[in-house]
Every structure is written in structure tokens, then in C-alpha cells.
């Protein structure tokens, strides 16, 4: 399946903001289930844009604006070809040893309630890890209502679990907290998701989790949709939690209050479109 992404992140500041620095985890890499055909990152103001790999193996761009700016748009355009691998992620970049993904973070600390929930959801029955994870996935999907609003980017798994509501980020955090409590290495994935209705996606991208299975390797679990990762998932960055995989982290001096707008379009390209781009652009985004 071909998936086309057009993703604008638009910041406007009350006054010109100085010292703008942004850390962008917005560039996907290849693995057996996805091939990046074309990818570009284009900030709307002049500055220095350099890329490197972080500890997880994500491609990270550091953008430093030359001058003060009243607005900044980071535009991401690209196209990825995906293949159905039943959620299994192989052939990608793996930089960290497995026990690392057992580490708790403040966003994924399991409360006593989450621990009890994890225990109950997975008790009895088939105790193979795959089965346990699928039951957990189902339980989180059913227990937590998908509802934008009550939570924010800094909401912890504990908090959203208590509210019983959240967005894909919160559901992923709860799944991670519960799975790590069961001593299963688990990580956070940020990326894009092609919705059936093929329309504009109001959210700022998608998030899910990956858990490690002894024989199969990493498998994607999308708690918001209640399924394993599919062809419709474009995998961009991984981390222990949202913070480690956050698409954009930024800082500035002055500028007053900031307005943030995200415009995201994920769709399938029409036949004959977007097939002529060279490998050169891909290399540029990794440079």
C-alpha cells in the first residue's frame, strides 16, 4: 500500500520569538514492512537544519532559526510504501538492548490500579506472551474511551487511566505501563495512520506501542484501534514514551504566547502520481 503524508505544524507567536530551536523526529526509516520512497522536511524560515541519529536509532533533525520569527511552519511531505507483516517489525534499525525497554518513565509509571488491571486482564487462559499481549490490547481498548480533550501531551498513564479517557498517546502509555509491569519489553511508536474515510486527520499524527516477543521480535499494538499494526501504519520514531519519540520538541526566547495548529493529510496517492521522485530526496532527509 502506498501512503502519502502532508503534515504542517504551524506556530504563530505574539511577538517575534528569538533563539528558535526545534528537535524534529519526523523522518521514518525503512524496515521490512515499510519502504520510504520520498521524504522532505521544510521549515518556513531560514536556519540550520542538520540530522543525526539518536540513541534509539531515530533520525533526528535539529533546526536552529537564523533570526527572530513571528511564525514558523514545519512542513513534512512524503510517501511510503507499506507491506502487511502482521504487525511484526523486522529489518529495521535496533540500537538498544532489550532490557532497556523495561525501564519505567514518569509518563508510563504503572499505578496500583494499572497493575491490578494488567493482572486481571491477562490472568488465566493461554499464557503465551502473544496471547497475553492481545488480551491486554483488547482490555485497554475497551476500558479507555477514545476522547480528545481531557488529556494533554504531558498526561501520565496513571492520570489518563484514572479518567478512563484519552487519545492514542494515552492509550499507548497505558498499554506500555501495563506490559512493562508484566516484565515485557515495550516501547512507544509515533507515526501516521491511514484512516478508512481518507479525510483530513484532525489529530497530530498517531501513536501506538511495540512489544517484544521472544521468537517473533517486535510487534506493533495499536490500543486506540484495538489491533496489531497494519499496512495503514507508518512508523516514524520510537521511544520509551511520548517524550522520547515526540515529533517536535522546541524552545525559544520571548515571543509571548504561542498558537499551534496542525494540518495533517494522510491518504493514498492517485495512480501515476508521485512515482518519479529520485532517491536523492530520501538521502537528503537522512543526511
Amino acid at each position: 500500500m502506498r501512503i502519502r503524508v502532508l503534515h504542517d505544524t504551524i506556530y504563530t507567536y505574539e511577538q517575534p520569538a528569538r533563539g528558535l530551536i526545534q528537535v524534529l523526529r519526523l523522518t521514518p526509516r525503512d524496515h521490512d514492512g515499510q519502504h520510504v520512497r520520498e521524504w522532505r522536511i521544510e521549515p518556513s524560515v531560514d536556519g540550520r537544519l542538520t540530522a543525526r541519529e539518536d540513541g534509539f536509532g531515530n533520525i533526528v533533525h535539529w533546526f536552529t532559526a537564523d533570526d527572530a520569527a513571528e511564525a514558523l511552519t514545519v512542513r513534512v511531505t512524503g510517501e511510503v510504501e507499506t507491506f502487511d507483516t502482521s504487525g511484526i517489525v523486522r529489518g529495521g534499525v535496533e540500537r538498544l538492548p532489550e532490557p532497556f525497554y523495561l525501564r519505567d518513565t514518569s509518563l508510563t509509571l504503572p499505578s496500583a490500579e494499572i497493575q491490578a488491571f494488567a493482572g486481571k486482564a491477562t490472568a488465566g487462559g493461554d499464557q503465551s506472551r502473544l496471547s497475553v499481549l492481545h488480551r491486554l490490547l483488547e482490555a485497554v481498548h475497551e476500558r479507555i474511551e477514545f476522547e480528545p480533550g481531557p488529556t494533554s501531551a504531558s498526561t501520565t498513564a496513571m492520570e489518563s487511566f484514572e479518567v478512563g479517557k484519552g487519545v492514542c498517546q494515552d492509550l499507548a502509555h497505558i498499554f506500555i505501563a501495563a506490559a512493562r509491569h508484566l516484565e515485557i519489553p515495550t516501547r512507544y511508536v509515533s507515526g501516521y495512520f491511514l484512516h478508512d474515510d481518507d479525510g483530513e486527520d484532525p489529530s497530530a499524527g498517531h501513536a501506538w506501542a511495540e512489544a517484544l516477543l521472544p521468537d517473533l521480535g517486535w510487534i506493533g499494538f495499536d490500543a486506540a484501534n484495538g489491533v496489531s499494526a497494519t499496512e495503514a501504519h507508518v512508523r516514524v520514531a520510537i521511544g520509551l514514551d511520548y517524550l522520547g519519540a515526540a515529533p517536535i520538541r522546541g524552545s525559544r526566547v520571548g515571543g509571548g504566547t504561542e498558537k499551534l495548529e496542525v494540518r495533517l493529510k494522510v491518504d493514498e496517492p492517485q495512480r501515476g502520481q508521485s512515482q518519479t521522485q529520485s532517491q536523492g530526496t530520501q538521502r537528503q532527509s537522512q543526511g
Partner: peptide, 26 residues
């Protein structure tokens, strides 16, 4: 990671430690 491979110290004691900064690996 020789000392981990040689079993001088358990891997999870290192990697699960909050003060182990994976940024330093690169």
C-alpha cells in the same frame, strides 16, 4: 559493553537504571 557480555554485572541493572543515558551511546 564488554563487562556486561562477560557477566561482570547483570545487564538489566545497567539498562533499566534511570541514570543510564542512552544518548551517550551514539
Amino acid at each position: 559493553e564488554e563487562c556486561i557480555k562477560a557477566g561482570v554485572i547483570p545487564a538489566d541493572l545497567v539498562y533499566r537504571n534511570q541514570h543510564y543515558q542512552m544518548e551517550m551511546r551514539s
